[in-house]
């Protein structure tokens, strides 16, 4: 479950910060259920109803509140939300008012990568083998690899990932949430495929497709892998 850590009780500030996040990773805000954590706040009363309205306006569905004093707990219940006790020994993570936490999904990883300002443009062409431990990123557009991506390597792109060789490592397309991005490769052996945060591990890939030329697209909230003739 995604946890949204509130560092401000002011609905207007929350609205501004959510709007900023939304432009970075639109895919993250698709009626995602979130837990509002108010542990970091020291406010006896919260305008919880207004905060929830702000969240819903940004396609986030608050389902519960974590932490806070007794009145907060009562108002959460009154709004039909669940309430969790605060987490002991809060982990020392960098404070951000909207922090995707807990869920170690690729969606979160994607959301944490800073989006460049401006429109997606300007791809990147990499010639040669992407070797284990190397990471090749195209933060603004497509990534074309003329060569293979070996196991333990990672290729990422804001747009689509094209590999004119064997894909044995990890490929992440649409890292800023572009659901129309795709992954294309000559020979599929990928450790991980991800489009806009929706991922498939090697284990989840139909063995029949391994070693073949394929394209990977987001179909609904599932990755579809289809052979390319």
């Amino acid at each position: 479950m995604t946890v949204m850590e509130l560092t401000s009780a002011d609905p207007e500030r929350i609205r501004d910060q959510l709007a900023g996040k939304l432009s970075q990773s639109p895919a993250f805000f698709q009626h995602t259920p979130v837990v509002l954590s108010v542990e970091k706040l020291d406010e006896p009363h919260l305008a919880l109803e207004r905060i929830c309205a702000v969240c819903r306006a940004h396609k986030l569905l608050p389902v519960a509140v974590r932490g806070g004093p007794e009145p907060v707990k009562q108002s959460a219940w009154a709004l039909g939300l669940g309430w969790f006790p605060p987490q002991e020994a809060a982990r020392p993570r960098p404070l951000e008012s909207v922090a995707p936490g807990e869920a170690e999904s690729a969606a979160d990883a994607a959301a944490e990568i800073e989006a460049p300002p401006g429109v997606s443009s300007g791809g990147r062409i990499y010639r040669g083998t992407v070797r284990s431990g190397q990471q090749v990123t195209s933060p603004e557009g497509d990534l074309v690899v003329v060569g293979s991506v070996n196991a333990g390597a990672e290729v990422l792109a804001a747009g689509s990932v094209h590999v004119y060789g064997a894909l044995r490592g990890r490929a992440l397309a649409g890292i800023h949430g572009d659901p129309l991005a795709g992954i294309f490769c000559r020979e599929l052996h990928a450790e991980l495929l991800s489009v806009a945060g929706n991922y498939k591990r090697l284990e989840d890939i139909d063995p029949c497709l391994l070693g073949t030329t394929v394209q990977v697209r987001l179909e609904g909230d599932q990755l579809g892998i289809t052979p390319l003739a």
Partner: peptide, 13 residues
Amino acid sequence: VRDSDRILGLLAS
């Protein structure tokens, strides 16, 4: 083979 691949990456950088 994987470790050699890693070393090749370091040799190139």
